[in-house]
Design a protein around this nucleic acid. Structure first.
Length: 470
RNA sequence: GGCGCCGUACCCAAGCGGCUAAGGGAGUGGAUUGCAAAUCCAUCAUUCAGCGGUUCGAGUCCGCUCGGCGCCUCCA
């Protein structure tokens, strides 16, 4: 299985070749834990999960590293603005450490519910301050920095090819069009490596450094931590498209300047989830969390299915109608699989017939072609209708595909357990059965409507009536 | 002002020069069911925003027009 990935660096689709045979170093920009993640944020982590699963499916051993930003990420650019963590702590009356812990926990709970596999290593910025200081020191020794207004800046004019991936050289950037220009900067694109003059300094969040007590700039953490865990040159780096022009551009500059070599071979970026009204973001408010979906009665995997229905590199508009369609599709899929289990069983893919092998390689080809998950879902639906496949072959294929899709297709269709039936409903059900037996359908339908109003849907089956909560 | 993306049926969405334009949701007709639900069968774009061009051949490449979006603040 040869993967072809669209590399943002060069904007071309390339065949993936790892630096070391059979191994992949993968770094993904993780959450800044100052608030709950919204469903747009979760698209990035779901996409990265699909990437990781696909790599593993293809036989690679993946070392997946993800950071948790718990310091240094400002609300504004340059040396203006406040640290997000500190701001959140002040507003909520909690310590920064409590804030970080609370939202980190919430983040991984959401990840788990979306079947996102835990990265092999999760690293917190606050636990790697020394690595960052060391890297800034190296940059200083190599002459890439200057100190102004108490802060240490990276001088982008000293790094040839700065902004190449983002195509910055061809853009007539309007610096200061919407944000006050930082007068300490020598170049508009320069950025802070280490802060010492924060106006909002929370003493709990500063560390001693050669430049004075302070805290790190946001970009340096990813460079320092990825280098520590994956080395100075590794395979894949992921993140949202929003990171291309600034965060990743700066990461490349400082990493390659410090390490003195090529840093990342493949850059993969996911596009945004949009609302009908435009972008979803924390600062604008009005964002939707996974918990909101669950509170409305959706399964977290309905959202994963929704995400898989669009290509990660395309903008996807979220709407409740679309989510409903995803839920209907996923529930139907689960029912069909449950039915298949009545007459077949999962086996090794080696036992597949020629037709089954054909279906499987088509699926693999689709996933290998820059992770075409919409196509992969279509493959499942087509295979279900394929008359040349036995139930066992279908199950075998679907479960193999689910290693990548991560939709928990092997789980039993969620049937509301009638164990907790309350007596009143029980009585109504019994009465309805009695009425049906006597062909008093007016009464039986009346009871059904009555229960439906209480959010209980009755489904008659050959084994008697079943019910579920809506 | 600069950079980039997109416009495929009622909705979402694949498709990257060549068999009859994937798949899902919704809808419609039929089978089944007391009726529903579920399931099964069938049906659902002579056409890919518009106009030109390249080509033996274009939804797919090029140009223009119209429309939508993102970035150049924070953001996944």
């Amino acid at each position: 299985m040869k993967l072809k990935l669209l590399n943002s660096d060069g904007r071309k689709t390339e065949e993936f070749k790892p630096l070391k045979d059979g191994e992949v170093g993968l770094y993904c920009c993780g959450p800044t834990v100052y608030n709950y993640a919204h469903i747009g944020n979760m698209r990035a982590y779901t996409f990265e999960d699909i990437l990781k699963r696909t790599l593993e499916y293809a036989g690679y051993t993946v070392n997946h590293v993800m950071n948790v930003t718990d310091v240094g990420h400002l609300t504004g650019d340059g040396d203006e603005g406040e640290d997000k963590m500190i701001k959140a702590a002040r507003e909520k009356g909690m310590t920064v450490w409590d804030i970080a812990e609370h939202f980190t926990e919430a983040f991984f709970r959401d990840s788990e519910r979306l079947n996102i596999e835990r990265p092999n290593r999760i690293c917190k910025a606050t636990e790697h301050i020394q690595d960052m200081i060391d890297m800034v020191k190296t940059l200083e020794d190599k002459g890439y920095t200057y100190v102004a207004g108490g802060n240490v800046y990276f001088d982008t004019s000293r790094f040839p090819g700065y902004g190449k991936m983002a195509n910055l050289e061809n853009q007539d950037l309007q610096h200061g069009a919407r944000v006050a220009v930082d007068g300490n900067k020598r170049n508009g694109t320069d950025f802070v490596l280490w802060f010492t003059n924060s106006k909002f300094g929370d003493q709990a969040m500063t560390w001693p450094s050669p430049w004075g007590e302070g805290y790190p700039g946001w970009h340096i953490e990813c460079s320092a931590m990825s280098t520590r865990y994956l080395g100075p040159h590794f395979d894949i780096h992921c993140g949202g498209v929003d990171h291309i022009p600034i965060h990743h551009t700066n990461e490349i500059a400082q990493s390659e300047a410090a390490n003195g070599c090529k840093w990342v071979n493949y850059w993969l970026h996911n596009e945004f989830i949009l609302m009908k009204s435009g972008k979803m973001s924390k600062s604008k408010g009005g964002f939707i969390t996974l918990q909101d979906l669950i509170d409305k009665g959706y399964n977290a995997l309905d959202y994963r299915y929704f995400l898989l229905g669009g290509h990660y590199r395309s903008q996807l508009v979220f709407s409740w109608e679309s989510l409903d369609a995803s839920r209907s599709a996923r529930e139907s899929l689960m029912r069909k699989i449950a039915a298949l289990k009545e007459e077949g069983r999962v086996q090794s893919v080696d036992t597949l017939t020629e037709e089954g092998q054909k279906v499987l390689s088509a699926f693999r080809e689709h996933m290998a072609a820059d992770l075409n998950t919409p196509r992969a879902l279509a493959d499942i639906w087509s295979l279900l209708k394929n008359k040349n496949l036995s139930a066992s072959d279908k199950l075998t294929l679907i479960m193999d595909m689910d290693r990548i899709l991560g939709l928990s297709l092997d789980e039993e269709a969620p049937e509301e357990e009638p164990a907790a039936l309350d007596a009143e409903i029980e009585a109504l059900l019994a009465e309805r059965q009695e009425a049906r037996k006597n062909k008093d359908f007016a009464r039986s339908d009346e009871i059904r409507d009555q229960l439906l109003e209480q959010g209980i849907q009755i489904i008659d089956s050959p084994d008697g009536p079943k019910w579920k909560k809506n």
